[in-house]
């Protein structure tokens, strides 16, 4: 019986889609059968981040409306034998789907998949309600900024009100150099404010931009962000993994780069 996980944040641009792509791919690397669902109807993005944009035939709305079977709409990622994507519709809007329909779809996918990941749109309207409807647990993504944390708090409140069984926090795009000099909230600060258990800390890593450019998630790679995402995947499946020391692992190369940025 598969588990349905929604990746959400409230605020836009904090890394929901990147997180969905990397956590989903990482889970597939760990031999789990995974389907990623882009629930952002009208603003489809997960397909380009995954590098599967050229293979879309049918989409989420087609499946919901019964124009095609689920298996016909699922895109198989050829790089990983266990990874599938259900893309969103680009030409429709959020009201094309109801929470009840999403729940039904998620329940149908449970039989075949170990993990069903929902990439939630920004905001707290219909799209958000659709994405969380069938979910067993939530990953709330935030960055260490006041606006993102405030929105995350609102989202966490709404998840509680909707009786989400499990909610975990991912602090994304943290910059240890700024935390160290006191100019950025640490993951502990964010965690303390939001009072939710932390499941991952992802450093601000330019490799994310590079990997997104190529349509290839960087989870499992040697980069800091790649390691951080793989650790999140392991925690999702129940392994206990210590948090990365984001400062220590920054080698000479990183330090040189850090210095250059300051100038």
């Amino acid at each position: 019986m598969g588990e349905v996980i929604v990746v959400t944040s409230g605020k836009g641009g904090v890394g929901k889609t990147t997180t969905t792509a990397n956590v989903g791919t990482g889970l597939a690397m760990l031999d789990k059968k995974v389907v990623l669902i882009d629930t952002d109807i009208g603003l489809r993005n997960l397909d380009v981040v995954m590098g599967l944009e050229n293979r879309i035939v049918y989409n989420l709305v087609d499946v919901i409306e019964g124009s095609c079977r689920i298996r016909n709409a699922l895109i198989k990622d050829k790089r990983y034998p266990n990874l599938y994507l259900l893309p969103s519709a680009q030409t429709r809007d959020k009201n094309a789907v109801t929470p009840e329909q999403m729940q039904k779809l998620a329940d149908e996918l449970r039989d075949e998949f170990d993990y069903i990941l929902m990439d939630c749109p920004a905001g707290i309207e219909q799209g958000f309600k659709n994405a969380i409807a069938g979910a067993d647990r939530a990953l709330v993504v935030t960055t260490p900024e006041v606006s993102a944390v405030r929105d995350a708090d609102r989202i966490i409140g709404l998840l509680e009100a909707n009786e989400m069984k499990q909610t975990h926090l991912i602090v994304n795009r943290i910059r240890m150099d700024m935390v160290k000099r006191g100019d950025m909230m640490s993951s502990d600060d964010v965690c303390e404010i939001l009072a939710v258990d932390l499941i991952g800390i992802v450093p601000d890593d330019e490799n994310i931009v590079i990997s997104t450019n190529q349509g290839e998630p960087l989870v499992g790679s040697d980069s800091l962000a790649g390691k951080a995402y793989m650790n999140i995947c392991k925690r999702v499946i129940g392994e206990e993994v210590p948090f990365l020391n984001l400062e220590e692992k920054q080698g000479i190369f990183g330090k040189l780069f850090g210095k250059r940025k300051k100038n």
Binding site: P144, R150, D153, M178, V179, R181, G182, M185, D189, I193
Partner: peptide, 21 residues
């Protein structure tokens, strides 16, 4: 340094705004 850092300012402001939120 902690007091001076803007990270702590952010944290304090957030705590206040979240109470009312």
């Amino acid at each position: 340094f902690k007091k001076k850092g803007t990270g702590n300012i952010a944290k304090d402001r957030l705590k206040l705004v979240l109470v009312s939120d």
